[in-house]
Nucleic acid binder design. Structure first.
Length: 842
RNA sequence: GCCCGGGUGGCGGAACGGUAGACGCGAGGGGCUUAAACCCCCUUGAGCUUUCGCAGCUCGUGUGGGUUCGAAUCCCACCCCGGGCACCA
């Protein structure tokens, strides 16, 4: 047990701030004797103490306050998986650092926490164990809450929300009805993964190599009536507004841009030879139409059936279609070797009347464009591969340069072999041919998006029920808003039986039609959990509201989220859905902003031995063990220090030893008795402290936490050195106070304890962030590098304010440099004072 | 396959186009100790030269080219690794 002397040692020392043991040189004689004068660094005790104090003080519970600048700081709310892993620790360490930093900088900081608590894992567990997902989920929430508190991460827990609670998901249902009202929710058939043995719909994740992960049965595609949100109506705005998001990582914006995938081109119709059938194609390269030597339909294309039945290739075609149905989209697109089958029919090229073979191939997807393409092997590599394999003609309609030795020529050039398009550049040819389509009445100019509508229905139990009723007379009828919530009923049997488990609950399913009062049946599908997460950041602004999803006025104060932090794996889906719903709410007058997240930060993954740290791989390092052995502060600091926050980083428990060692060194120098020396020269130490404040502040602002930590270590070392060789009391106080404040957001428990031990009554969390004086921080001299032809040859210590002429003079005067110039002509001298001079000789 | 990132010592990583390897880990040596641990000090990219001087030189940031007075950094090509691909979250 360590002793606790809770005294103001600083004032005691200051009274006697005179060297007692000065040696003959007048320097303080620090004899190197380290004994614990006050107390050990007992991280467990300190951390428990401060976690309790912060909760009592309610420092991080906030309200709308128009007098203060607001800062909405949000970490992506977690799925309650049961235990905190290092990914969470990393996420909340970054988030909490910012919460505390912004608080110290005078902001009214909203930092809420909640739970993405619907979803597949709890339902799967229920199928296996029979334990109700609610029971399971809520137990896991309790565990994780406890662990998050042990990390010392601060949230306004009065705003805690969980998507599985009725008070939350009733507003999912409200949101659904809003979308329905605006015609943005609709139902249509769409294929799902179906396991014929388990009689259930499978998530993509549950399909491994084309078979059901549970039973190994080959997975089939089956069409089901499904609910969609019409995100495609927002495609243009989602794309355009990416330009405003200049505080988002470029890579995320690029991924979203590509995901939306806007392309301009033409849609036109192609006749099937010797029939009255025709089909539409979309192409971005209508200028190459004279090179169309075949056409391809997706295996699911509605025309396929008519084309193959009773044809010469019927059997082969049917086998192919079946096989394509089993393959996942990724498999179909990644097949290096393109496959397909001849339908037996021919398509007529509208520009020259040529009959070209019509194929079925799975590299054409029904979900993109029209599900059919004109194939121009001369100008498209996939078409080239296919044509080569099946012996189809290849005609070039763009002349490649003489030295071109590739296959398909996809870049710009002069159009050839193309009748009335010959001699034109691409843009001209595209315009001309589309005008021709329009004149002929067979096609038009169009814009195509890769983005598809958002399929939100799930044939699952553990989700928010879709508030719709199927009436035999009235059709699809929404549940009236004042009848919400549609409460998710409790069930006991979670085993799949071909539909959502809710469908088995006859007494729940049978209801009256809100429109005609007749008998009707409830929708039994639940919503995708991405619906929950598409608007939860609005709810945090007003989480207890029973009357509406949130008060728009409160949301207007807090929104947008100033800083959003989470994994890069959400770069597209979640972030795109959240942007879509925010725009929708904006249009309805409920949101003051069109974009929900002003600044986005995506963190890297933690890896161990080159693999992602995950339970399934069995390579987790449990944060709880580290709270005990090293403390939350050392662990937090390690996460900050281990590498750039955006990058993946390899885990090394020895690294936590390192950050703990640093904290102990700081603890020791601050708490231990130091004899002060009024005559000591501390100019350089003070300057270093100012530089450290500057560097740490700037690095935090840039989210460069890994480079914010080393200067703290270096300054601590300098302080320790000075404490040994002689330091003035006021300097000691200034430097240690700077270190404590700079560490307050990083290692908050230790910093708070030291703040208290050094005689402060105030709560460090609400102290103001330290400032630096640029004049003091300024370096007076720097090392100037002298190069000859770009190679380092000498270094000279110079004044920072050195003139260019003087720098040049010194460089040319260097003996070492002279030896390298010897006998050669100096051609140029490049001077970048005060850092570098490069002498170019030849 | 498509889209997006990334490759720097034994390891994690640092480095406005200007001293490559800060800081930490590990390793080696020394000190403290009866001893060990802790702690403290020193060394630590490779090779060569050496009058052994905190001396000098050459090479070195995945590979090959290019731009530049100067490239880890910018450009082109290639190789390898990771994330996403619409029902995991």
């Amino acid at each position: 047990m360590s002793m606790v002397f809770n005294v103001d040692f600083m004032s005691i020392e200051r009274e006697g701030s005179r060297s007692i043991d000065a040696d003959s040189d007048g320097h303080a004689a620090f004899n190197g004797h380290y004994s614990l004068l006050f107390m050990d660094y007992d991280h467990q005790k300190i951390e428990a103490k401060w976690q309790e104090k912060w909760a009592e003080a309610a420092t991080f519970e906030v309200e709308v306050d128009d007098e203060m600048p607001k800062f909405y700081n949000l970490c992506m709310y977690p799925y309650p998986s049961g235990a905190l892993h290092q990914g969470h620790v990393r996420n909340y360490t970054f988030g909490d650092l910012l919460t505390r930093y912004k608080t110290m900088n005078g902001f009214n900081v909203l930092s809420p926490m909640g739970w993405d608590s619907f979803g597949l894992p709890a339902e799967n567990a229920a199928i296996e164990t029979g334990i109700h997902p609610r029971e399971n989920t809520e137990a896991q929430i309790r565990t994780m809450t406890q662990q998050i508190k042990q990390l010392g991460a601060m949230y306004d827990w009065t705003r805690e929300l969980a998507s599985h609670s009725v008070s939350y998901y009733r507003w999912d249902q409200w949101l659904f009805l809003q979308l329905w009202d605006q015609g943005l929710a609709y139902k249509r058939e769409a294929p799902v993964n179906w396991c014929p043995k388990d009689q259930t719909v499978l998530a993509n994740e549950q399909v491994v190599d084309g078979v059901c992960e549970r039973c190994g049965t080959p997975v089939e595609k089956r069409n089901l009536a499904q609910w969609f949100f019409k995100i495609t109506d927002f495609a243009e705005r989602l794309l355009d507004d990416l330009d405003q998001l200049d505080e988002w990582p470029d890579r995320v914006r690029t991924m979203q841009r590509n995901w939306i995938g806007k392309s301009r081109g033409a849609r036109f119709s192609i006749r099937v030879a010797d029939s009255d059938l025709s089909f539409e194609v979309f192409t971005t390269r209508p200028d190459t139409i004279f090179g169309m030597t075949f056409a391809v339909l997706a295996p699911e294309h509605p025309l396929v059936e008519q084309l193959i039945s009773d044809g010469p290739n019927e059997k082969e075609a049917r086998d192919y279609i079946l096989a394509a149905g089993r393959a996942s989209e990724i498999e179909r697109l990644s097949e290096g070797d393109k496959t397909g089958v001849f339908t037996g029919g021919y398509a007529v090229n509208p520009v020259n009347g040529a009959s070209v073979p019509l194929y079925i191939a799975d590299y054409v997807l029904m979900g993109y464009g029209t599900g059919a393409i004109m194939a121009v092997p001369g100008q498209d590599q996939r078409d080239w591969d296919f044509a080569s394999k099946y012996g189809i003609d290849i005609v070039r309609t763009v002349q490649p340069p003489a030295d071109f030795d590739g296959e398909a020529y996809v870049v710009e050039g002069v159009t050839v072999n193309s009748g009335f398009l010959d001699g034109m550049q691409r843009d001209k040819a595209v315009d001309t041919i589309i005008d021709w389509f329009v004149e002929e009445g067979i096609g038009e100019r169009t814009i195509q998006y890769r983005l598809r509508d958002w399929l939100i229905s799930r044939q699952r139990y553990w989700g928010s029920p879709i508030p719709m009723v199927n009436c035999p007379d009235c059709g699809l009828v929404p549940v009236p808003e004042d009848e919400l919530p549609v409460v998710l009923p409790d069930i006991r049997d979670f085993a799949p039986k071909g539909q959502s488990p809710l469908a088995a609950l006859e007494e729940w399913v049978v209801t009256t039609c809100p429109s005609c009062g007749g008998q009707a049946r409830r929708e039994t599908d639940t919503m995708d959990t991405f619906v929950d997460s598409s608007w939860y950041f609005f709810r945090f602004a007003d989480p207890l509201n029973e009357e509406m999803a949130f008060d728009p006025a409160k949301a207007a104060y807090w929104m947008p989220v100033d800083q959003y932090i989470g994994g890069v794996e959400h770069a597209v889906l979640h972030l795109l859905y959240a942007r879509f719903i925010t725009k929708f709410l904006f249009d309805r007058g409920l949101s003051s902003v069109e974009e929900p997240f002003a600044r986005l930060f995506t963190q890297g993954m933690i890896t161990l031995d080159g693999a992602k740290m995950s339970k399934s791989k069995g390579n987790v390092v449990d944060p709880l063990d580290l709270f005990e052995s090293h403390g939350a502060d050392a662990l937090r600091l390690y996460h900050l220090f281990m590498g750039p926050p955006t990058d993946d980083a390899g885990w090394d428990t020895n690294g936590v030893d390192g950050t703990l060692r640093f904290l102990e060194r700081l603890w020791k120098v601050v708490t231990e008795k130091t004899t002060f020396d009024d005559r000591a020269d501390s100019t350089e130490l003070i300057a270093e402290a100012h530089r450290t404040i500057k560097k740490v502040t700037e690095d935090i602002d840039r989210f460069r936490f890994n480079t914010a930590v080393p200067p703290l270590m270096t300054l601590t070392t300098s302080l320790i050195d000075a404490a040994r060789t002689g330091i003035r009391g006021d300097v000691f106080e200034f430097v240690s106070e700077a270190l404590i404040k700079l560490l307050a957001p990083m290692a908050p428990h230790l910093a708070h304890e030291l703040w208290e031990l050094t005689g402060h009554d105030s709560m460090l969390a609400t102290e103001s962030w330290p400032t630096w004086d640029p004049d003091v921080a300024k370096q007076t001299s720097v090392t100037m590098v002298i190069q000859v032809n770009g190679k380092l040859r000498d270094r000279i210590e110079v004044d920072v304010d050195i003139s260019a002429d003087r720098a040049k003079e010194l460089a040319l005067g260097s003996e070492k440099v002279a030896a390298w110039i010897d006998g050669k002509q100096v051609q140029r001298v490049i001077v970048r004072e005060p850092n570098l001079v490069n002498v170019v000789v030849g």
